[in-house]
C-alpha cells in the first residue's frame, strides 16, 4: 500500500492544478495551478526512478559491498525531471512576465475580463 501513496499524490496534484487553472479567476492563480501540475508530473517521474536497494551511480562514492553496475540505478528519470524543471522555470517566468504586461494593459487580473478576443 505504502508504495502507491506517491502515485495518489501525483493524481491529487494534477487535479488540484487543473482545478486552479480552470475555475480560479485570478491569472496568477492560474499560473500557480499550472506549476502545481508540473510538480505533480515531476513527482511522477521521480517516483518511477525509485528502486529499492539501489545506489546512486557515482563510482567514487559507492557504499562498501555493493555490486556494480547491477545495483546502480539508471538515472534517466532523474535526468528527465531536471530537464523538465528547467523548462518549467522558463515557462513560469514567461507566463508571469505576460501576466505583468497584461495587468498594465487591461488593469485587471481577472480572467473573465481578459476576453477581448472572442467568437
Amino acid at each position: 500500500m505504502i508504495q502507491y501513496i506517491p502515485f495518489i499524490a501525483v493524481v491529487c496534484m494534477i487535479f488540484i492544478g487543473l482545478y486552479a487553472a480552470m475555475f480560479r479567476r485570478n491569472l496568477i492563480k492560474i499560473v500557480i495551478g499550472i506549476t502545481i501540475i508540473e510538480s505533480g508530473v515531476n513527482l511522477f517521474l521521480i517516483t518511477l526512478g525509485y528502486r529499492e536497494g539501489g545506489v546512486a551511480p557515482i563510482y567514487t562514492s559507492l557504499p562498501s559491498g555493493t555490486v556494480y553496475p547491477e545495483q546502480m540505478v539508471l538515472p534517466v528519470p532523474q535526468a528527465l525531471t531536471l530537464t523538465s524543471i528547467v523548462i518549467g522555470v522558463a515557462v513560469l517566468a514567461l507566463m508571469l512576465s505576460l501576466v505583468m504586461h497584461i495587468y498594465k494593459k487591461y488593469e485587471t487580473l481577472d480572467v473573465q475580463e481578459m476576453r477581448r478576443l472572442k467568437e
Binding site: V111, M114, E119
Partner: peptide
C-alpha cells in the same frame, strides 16, 4: 456557437479536459 467561444482561457482548458 458564440456562447461556446467565450474567449476565456479557463474554458479553453475545460474543452480540452
Amino acid at each position: 456557437l458564440r456562447k461556446m467561444h467565450t474567449g476565456n482561457v479557463s474554458d479553453y482548458l475545460l474543452w480540452f479536459i
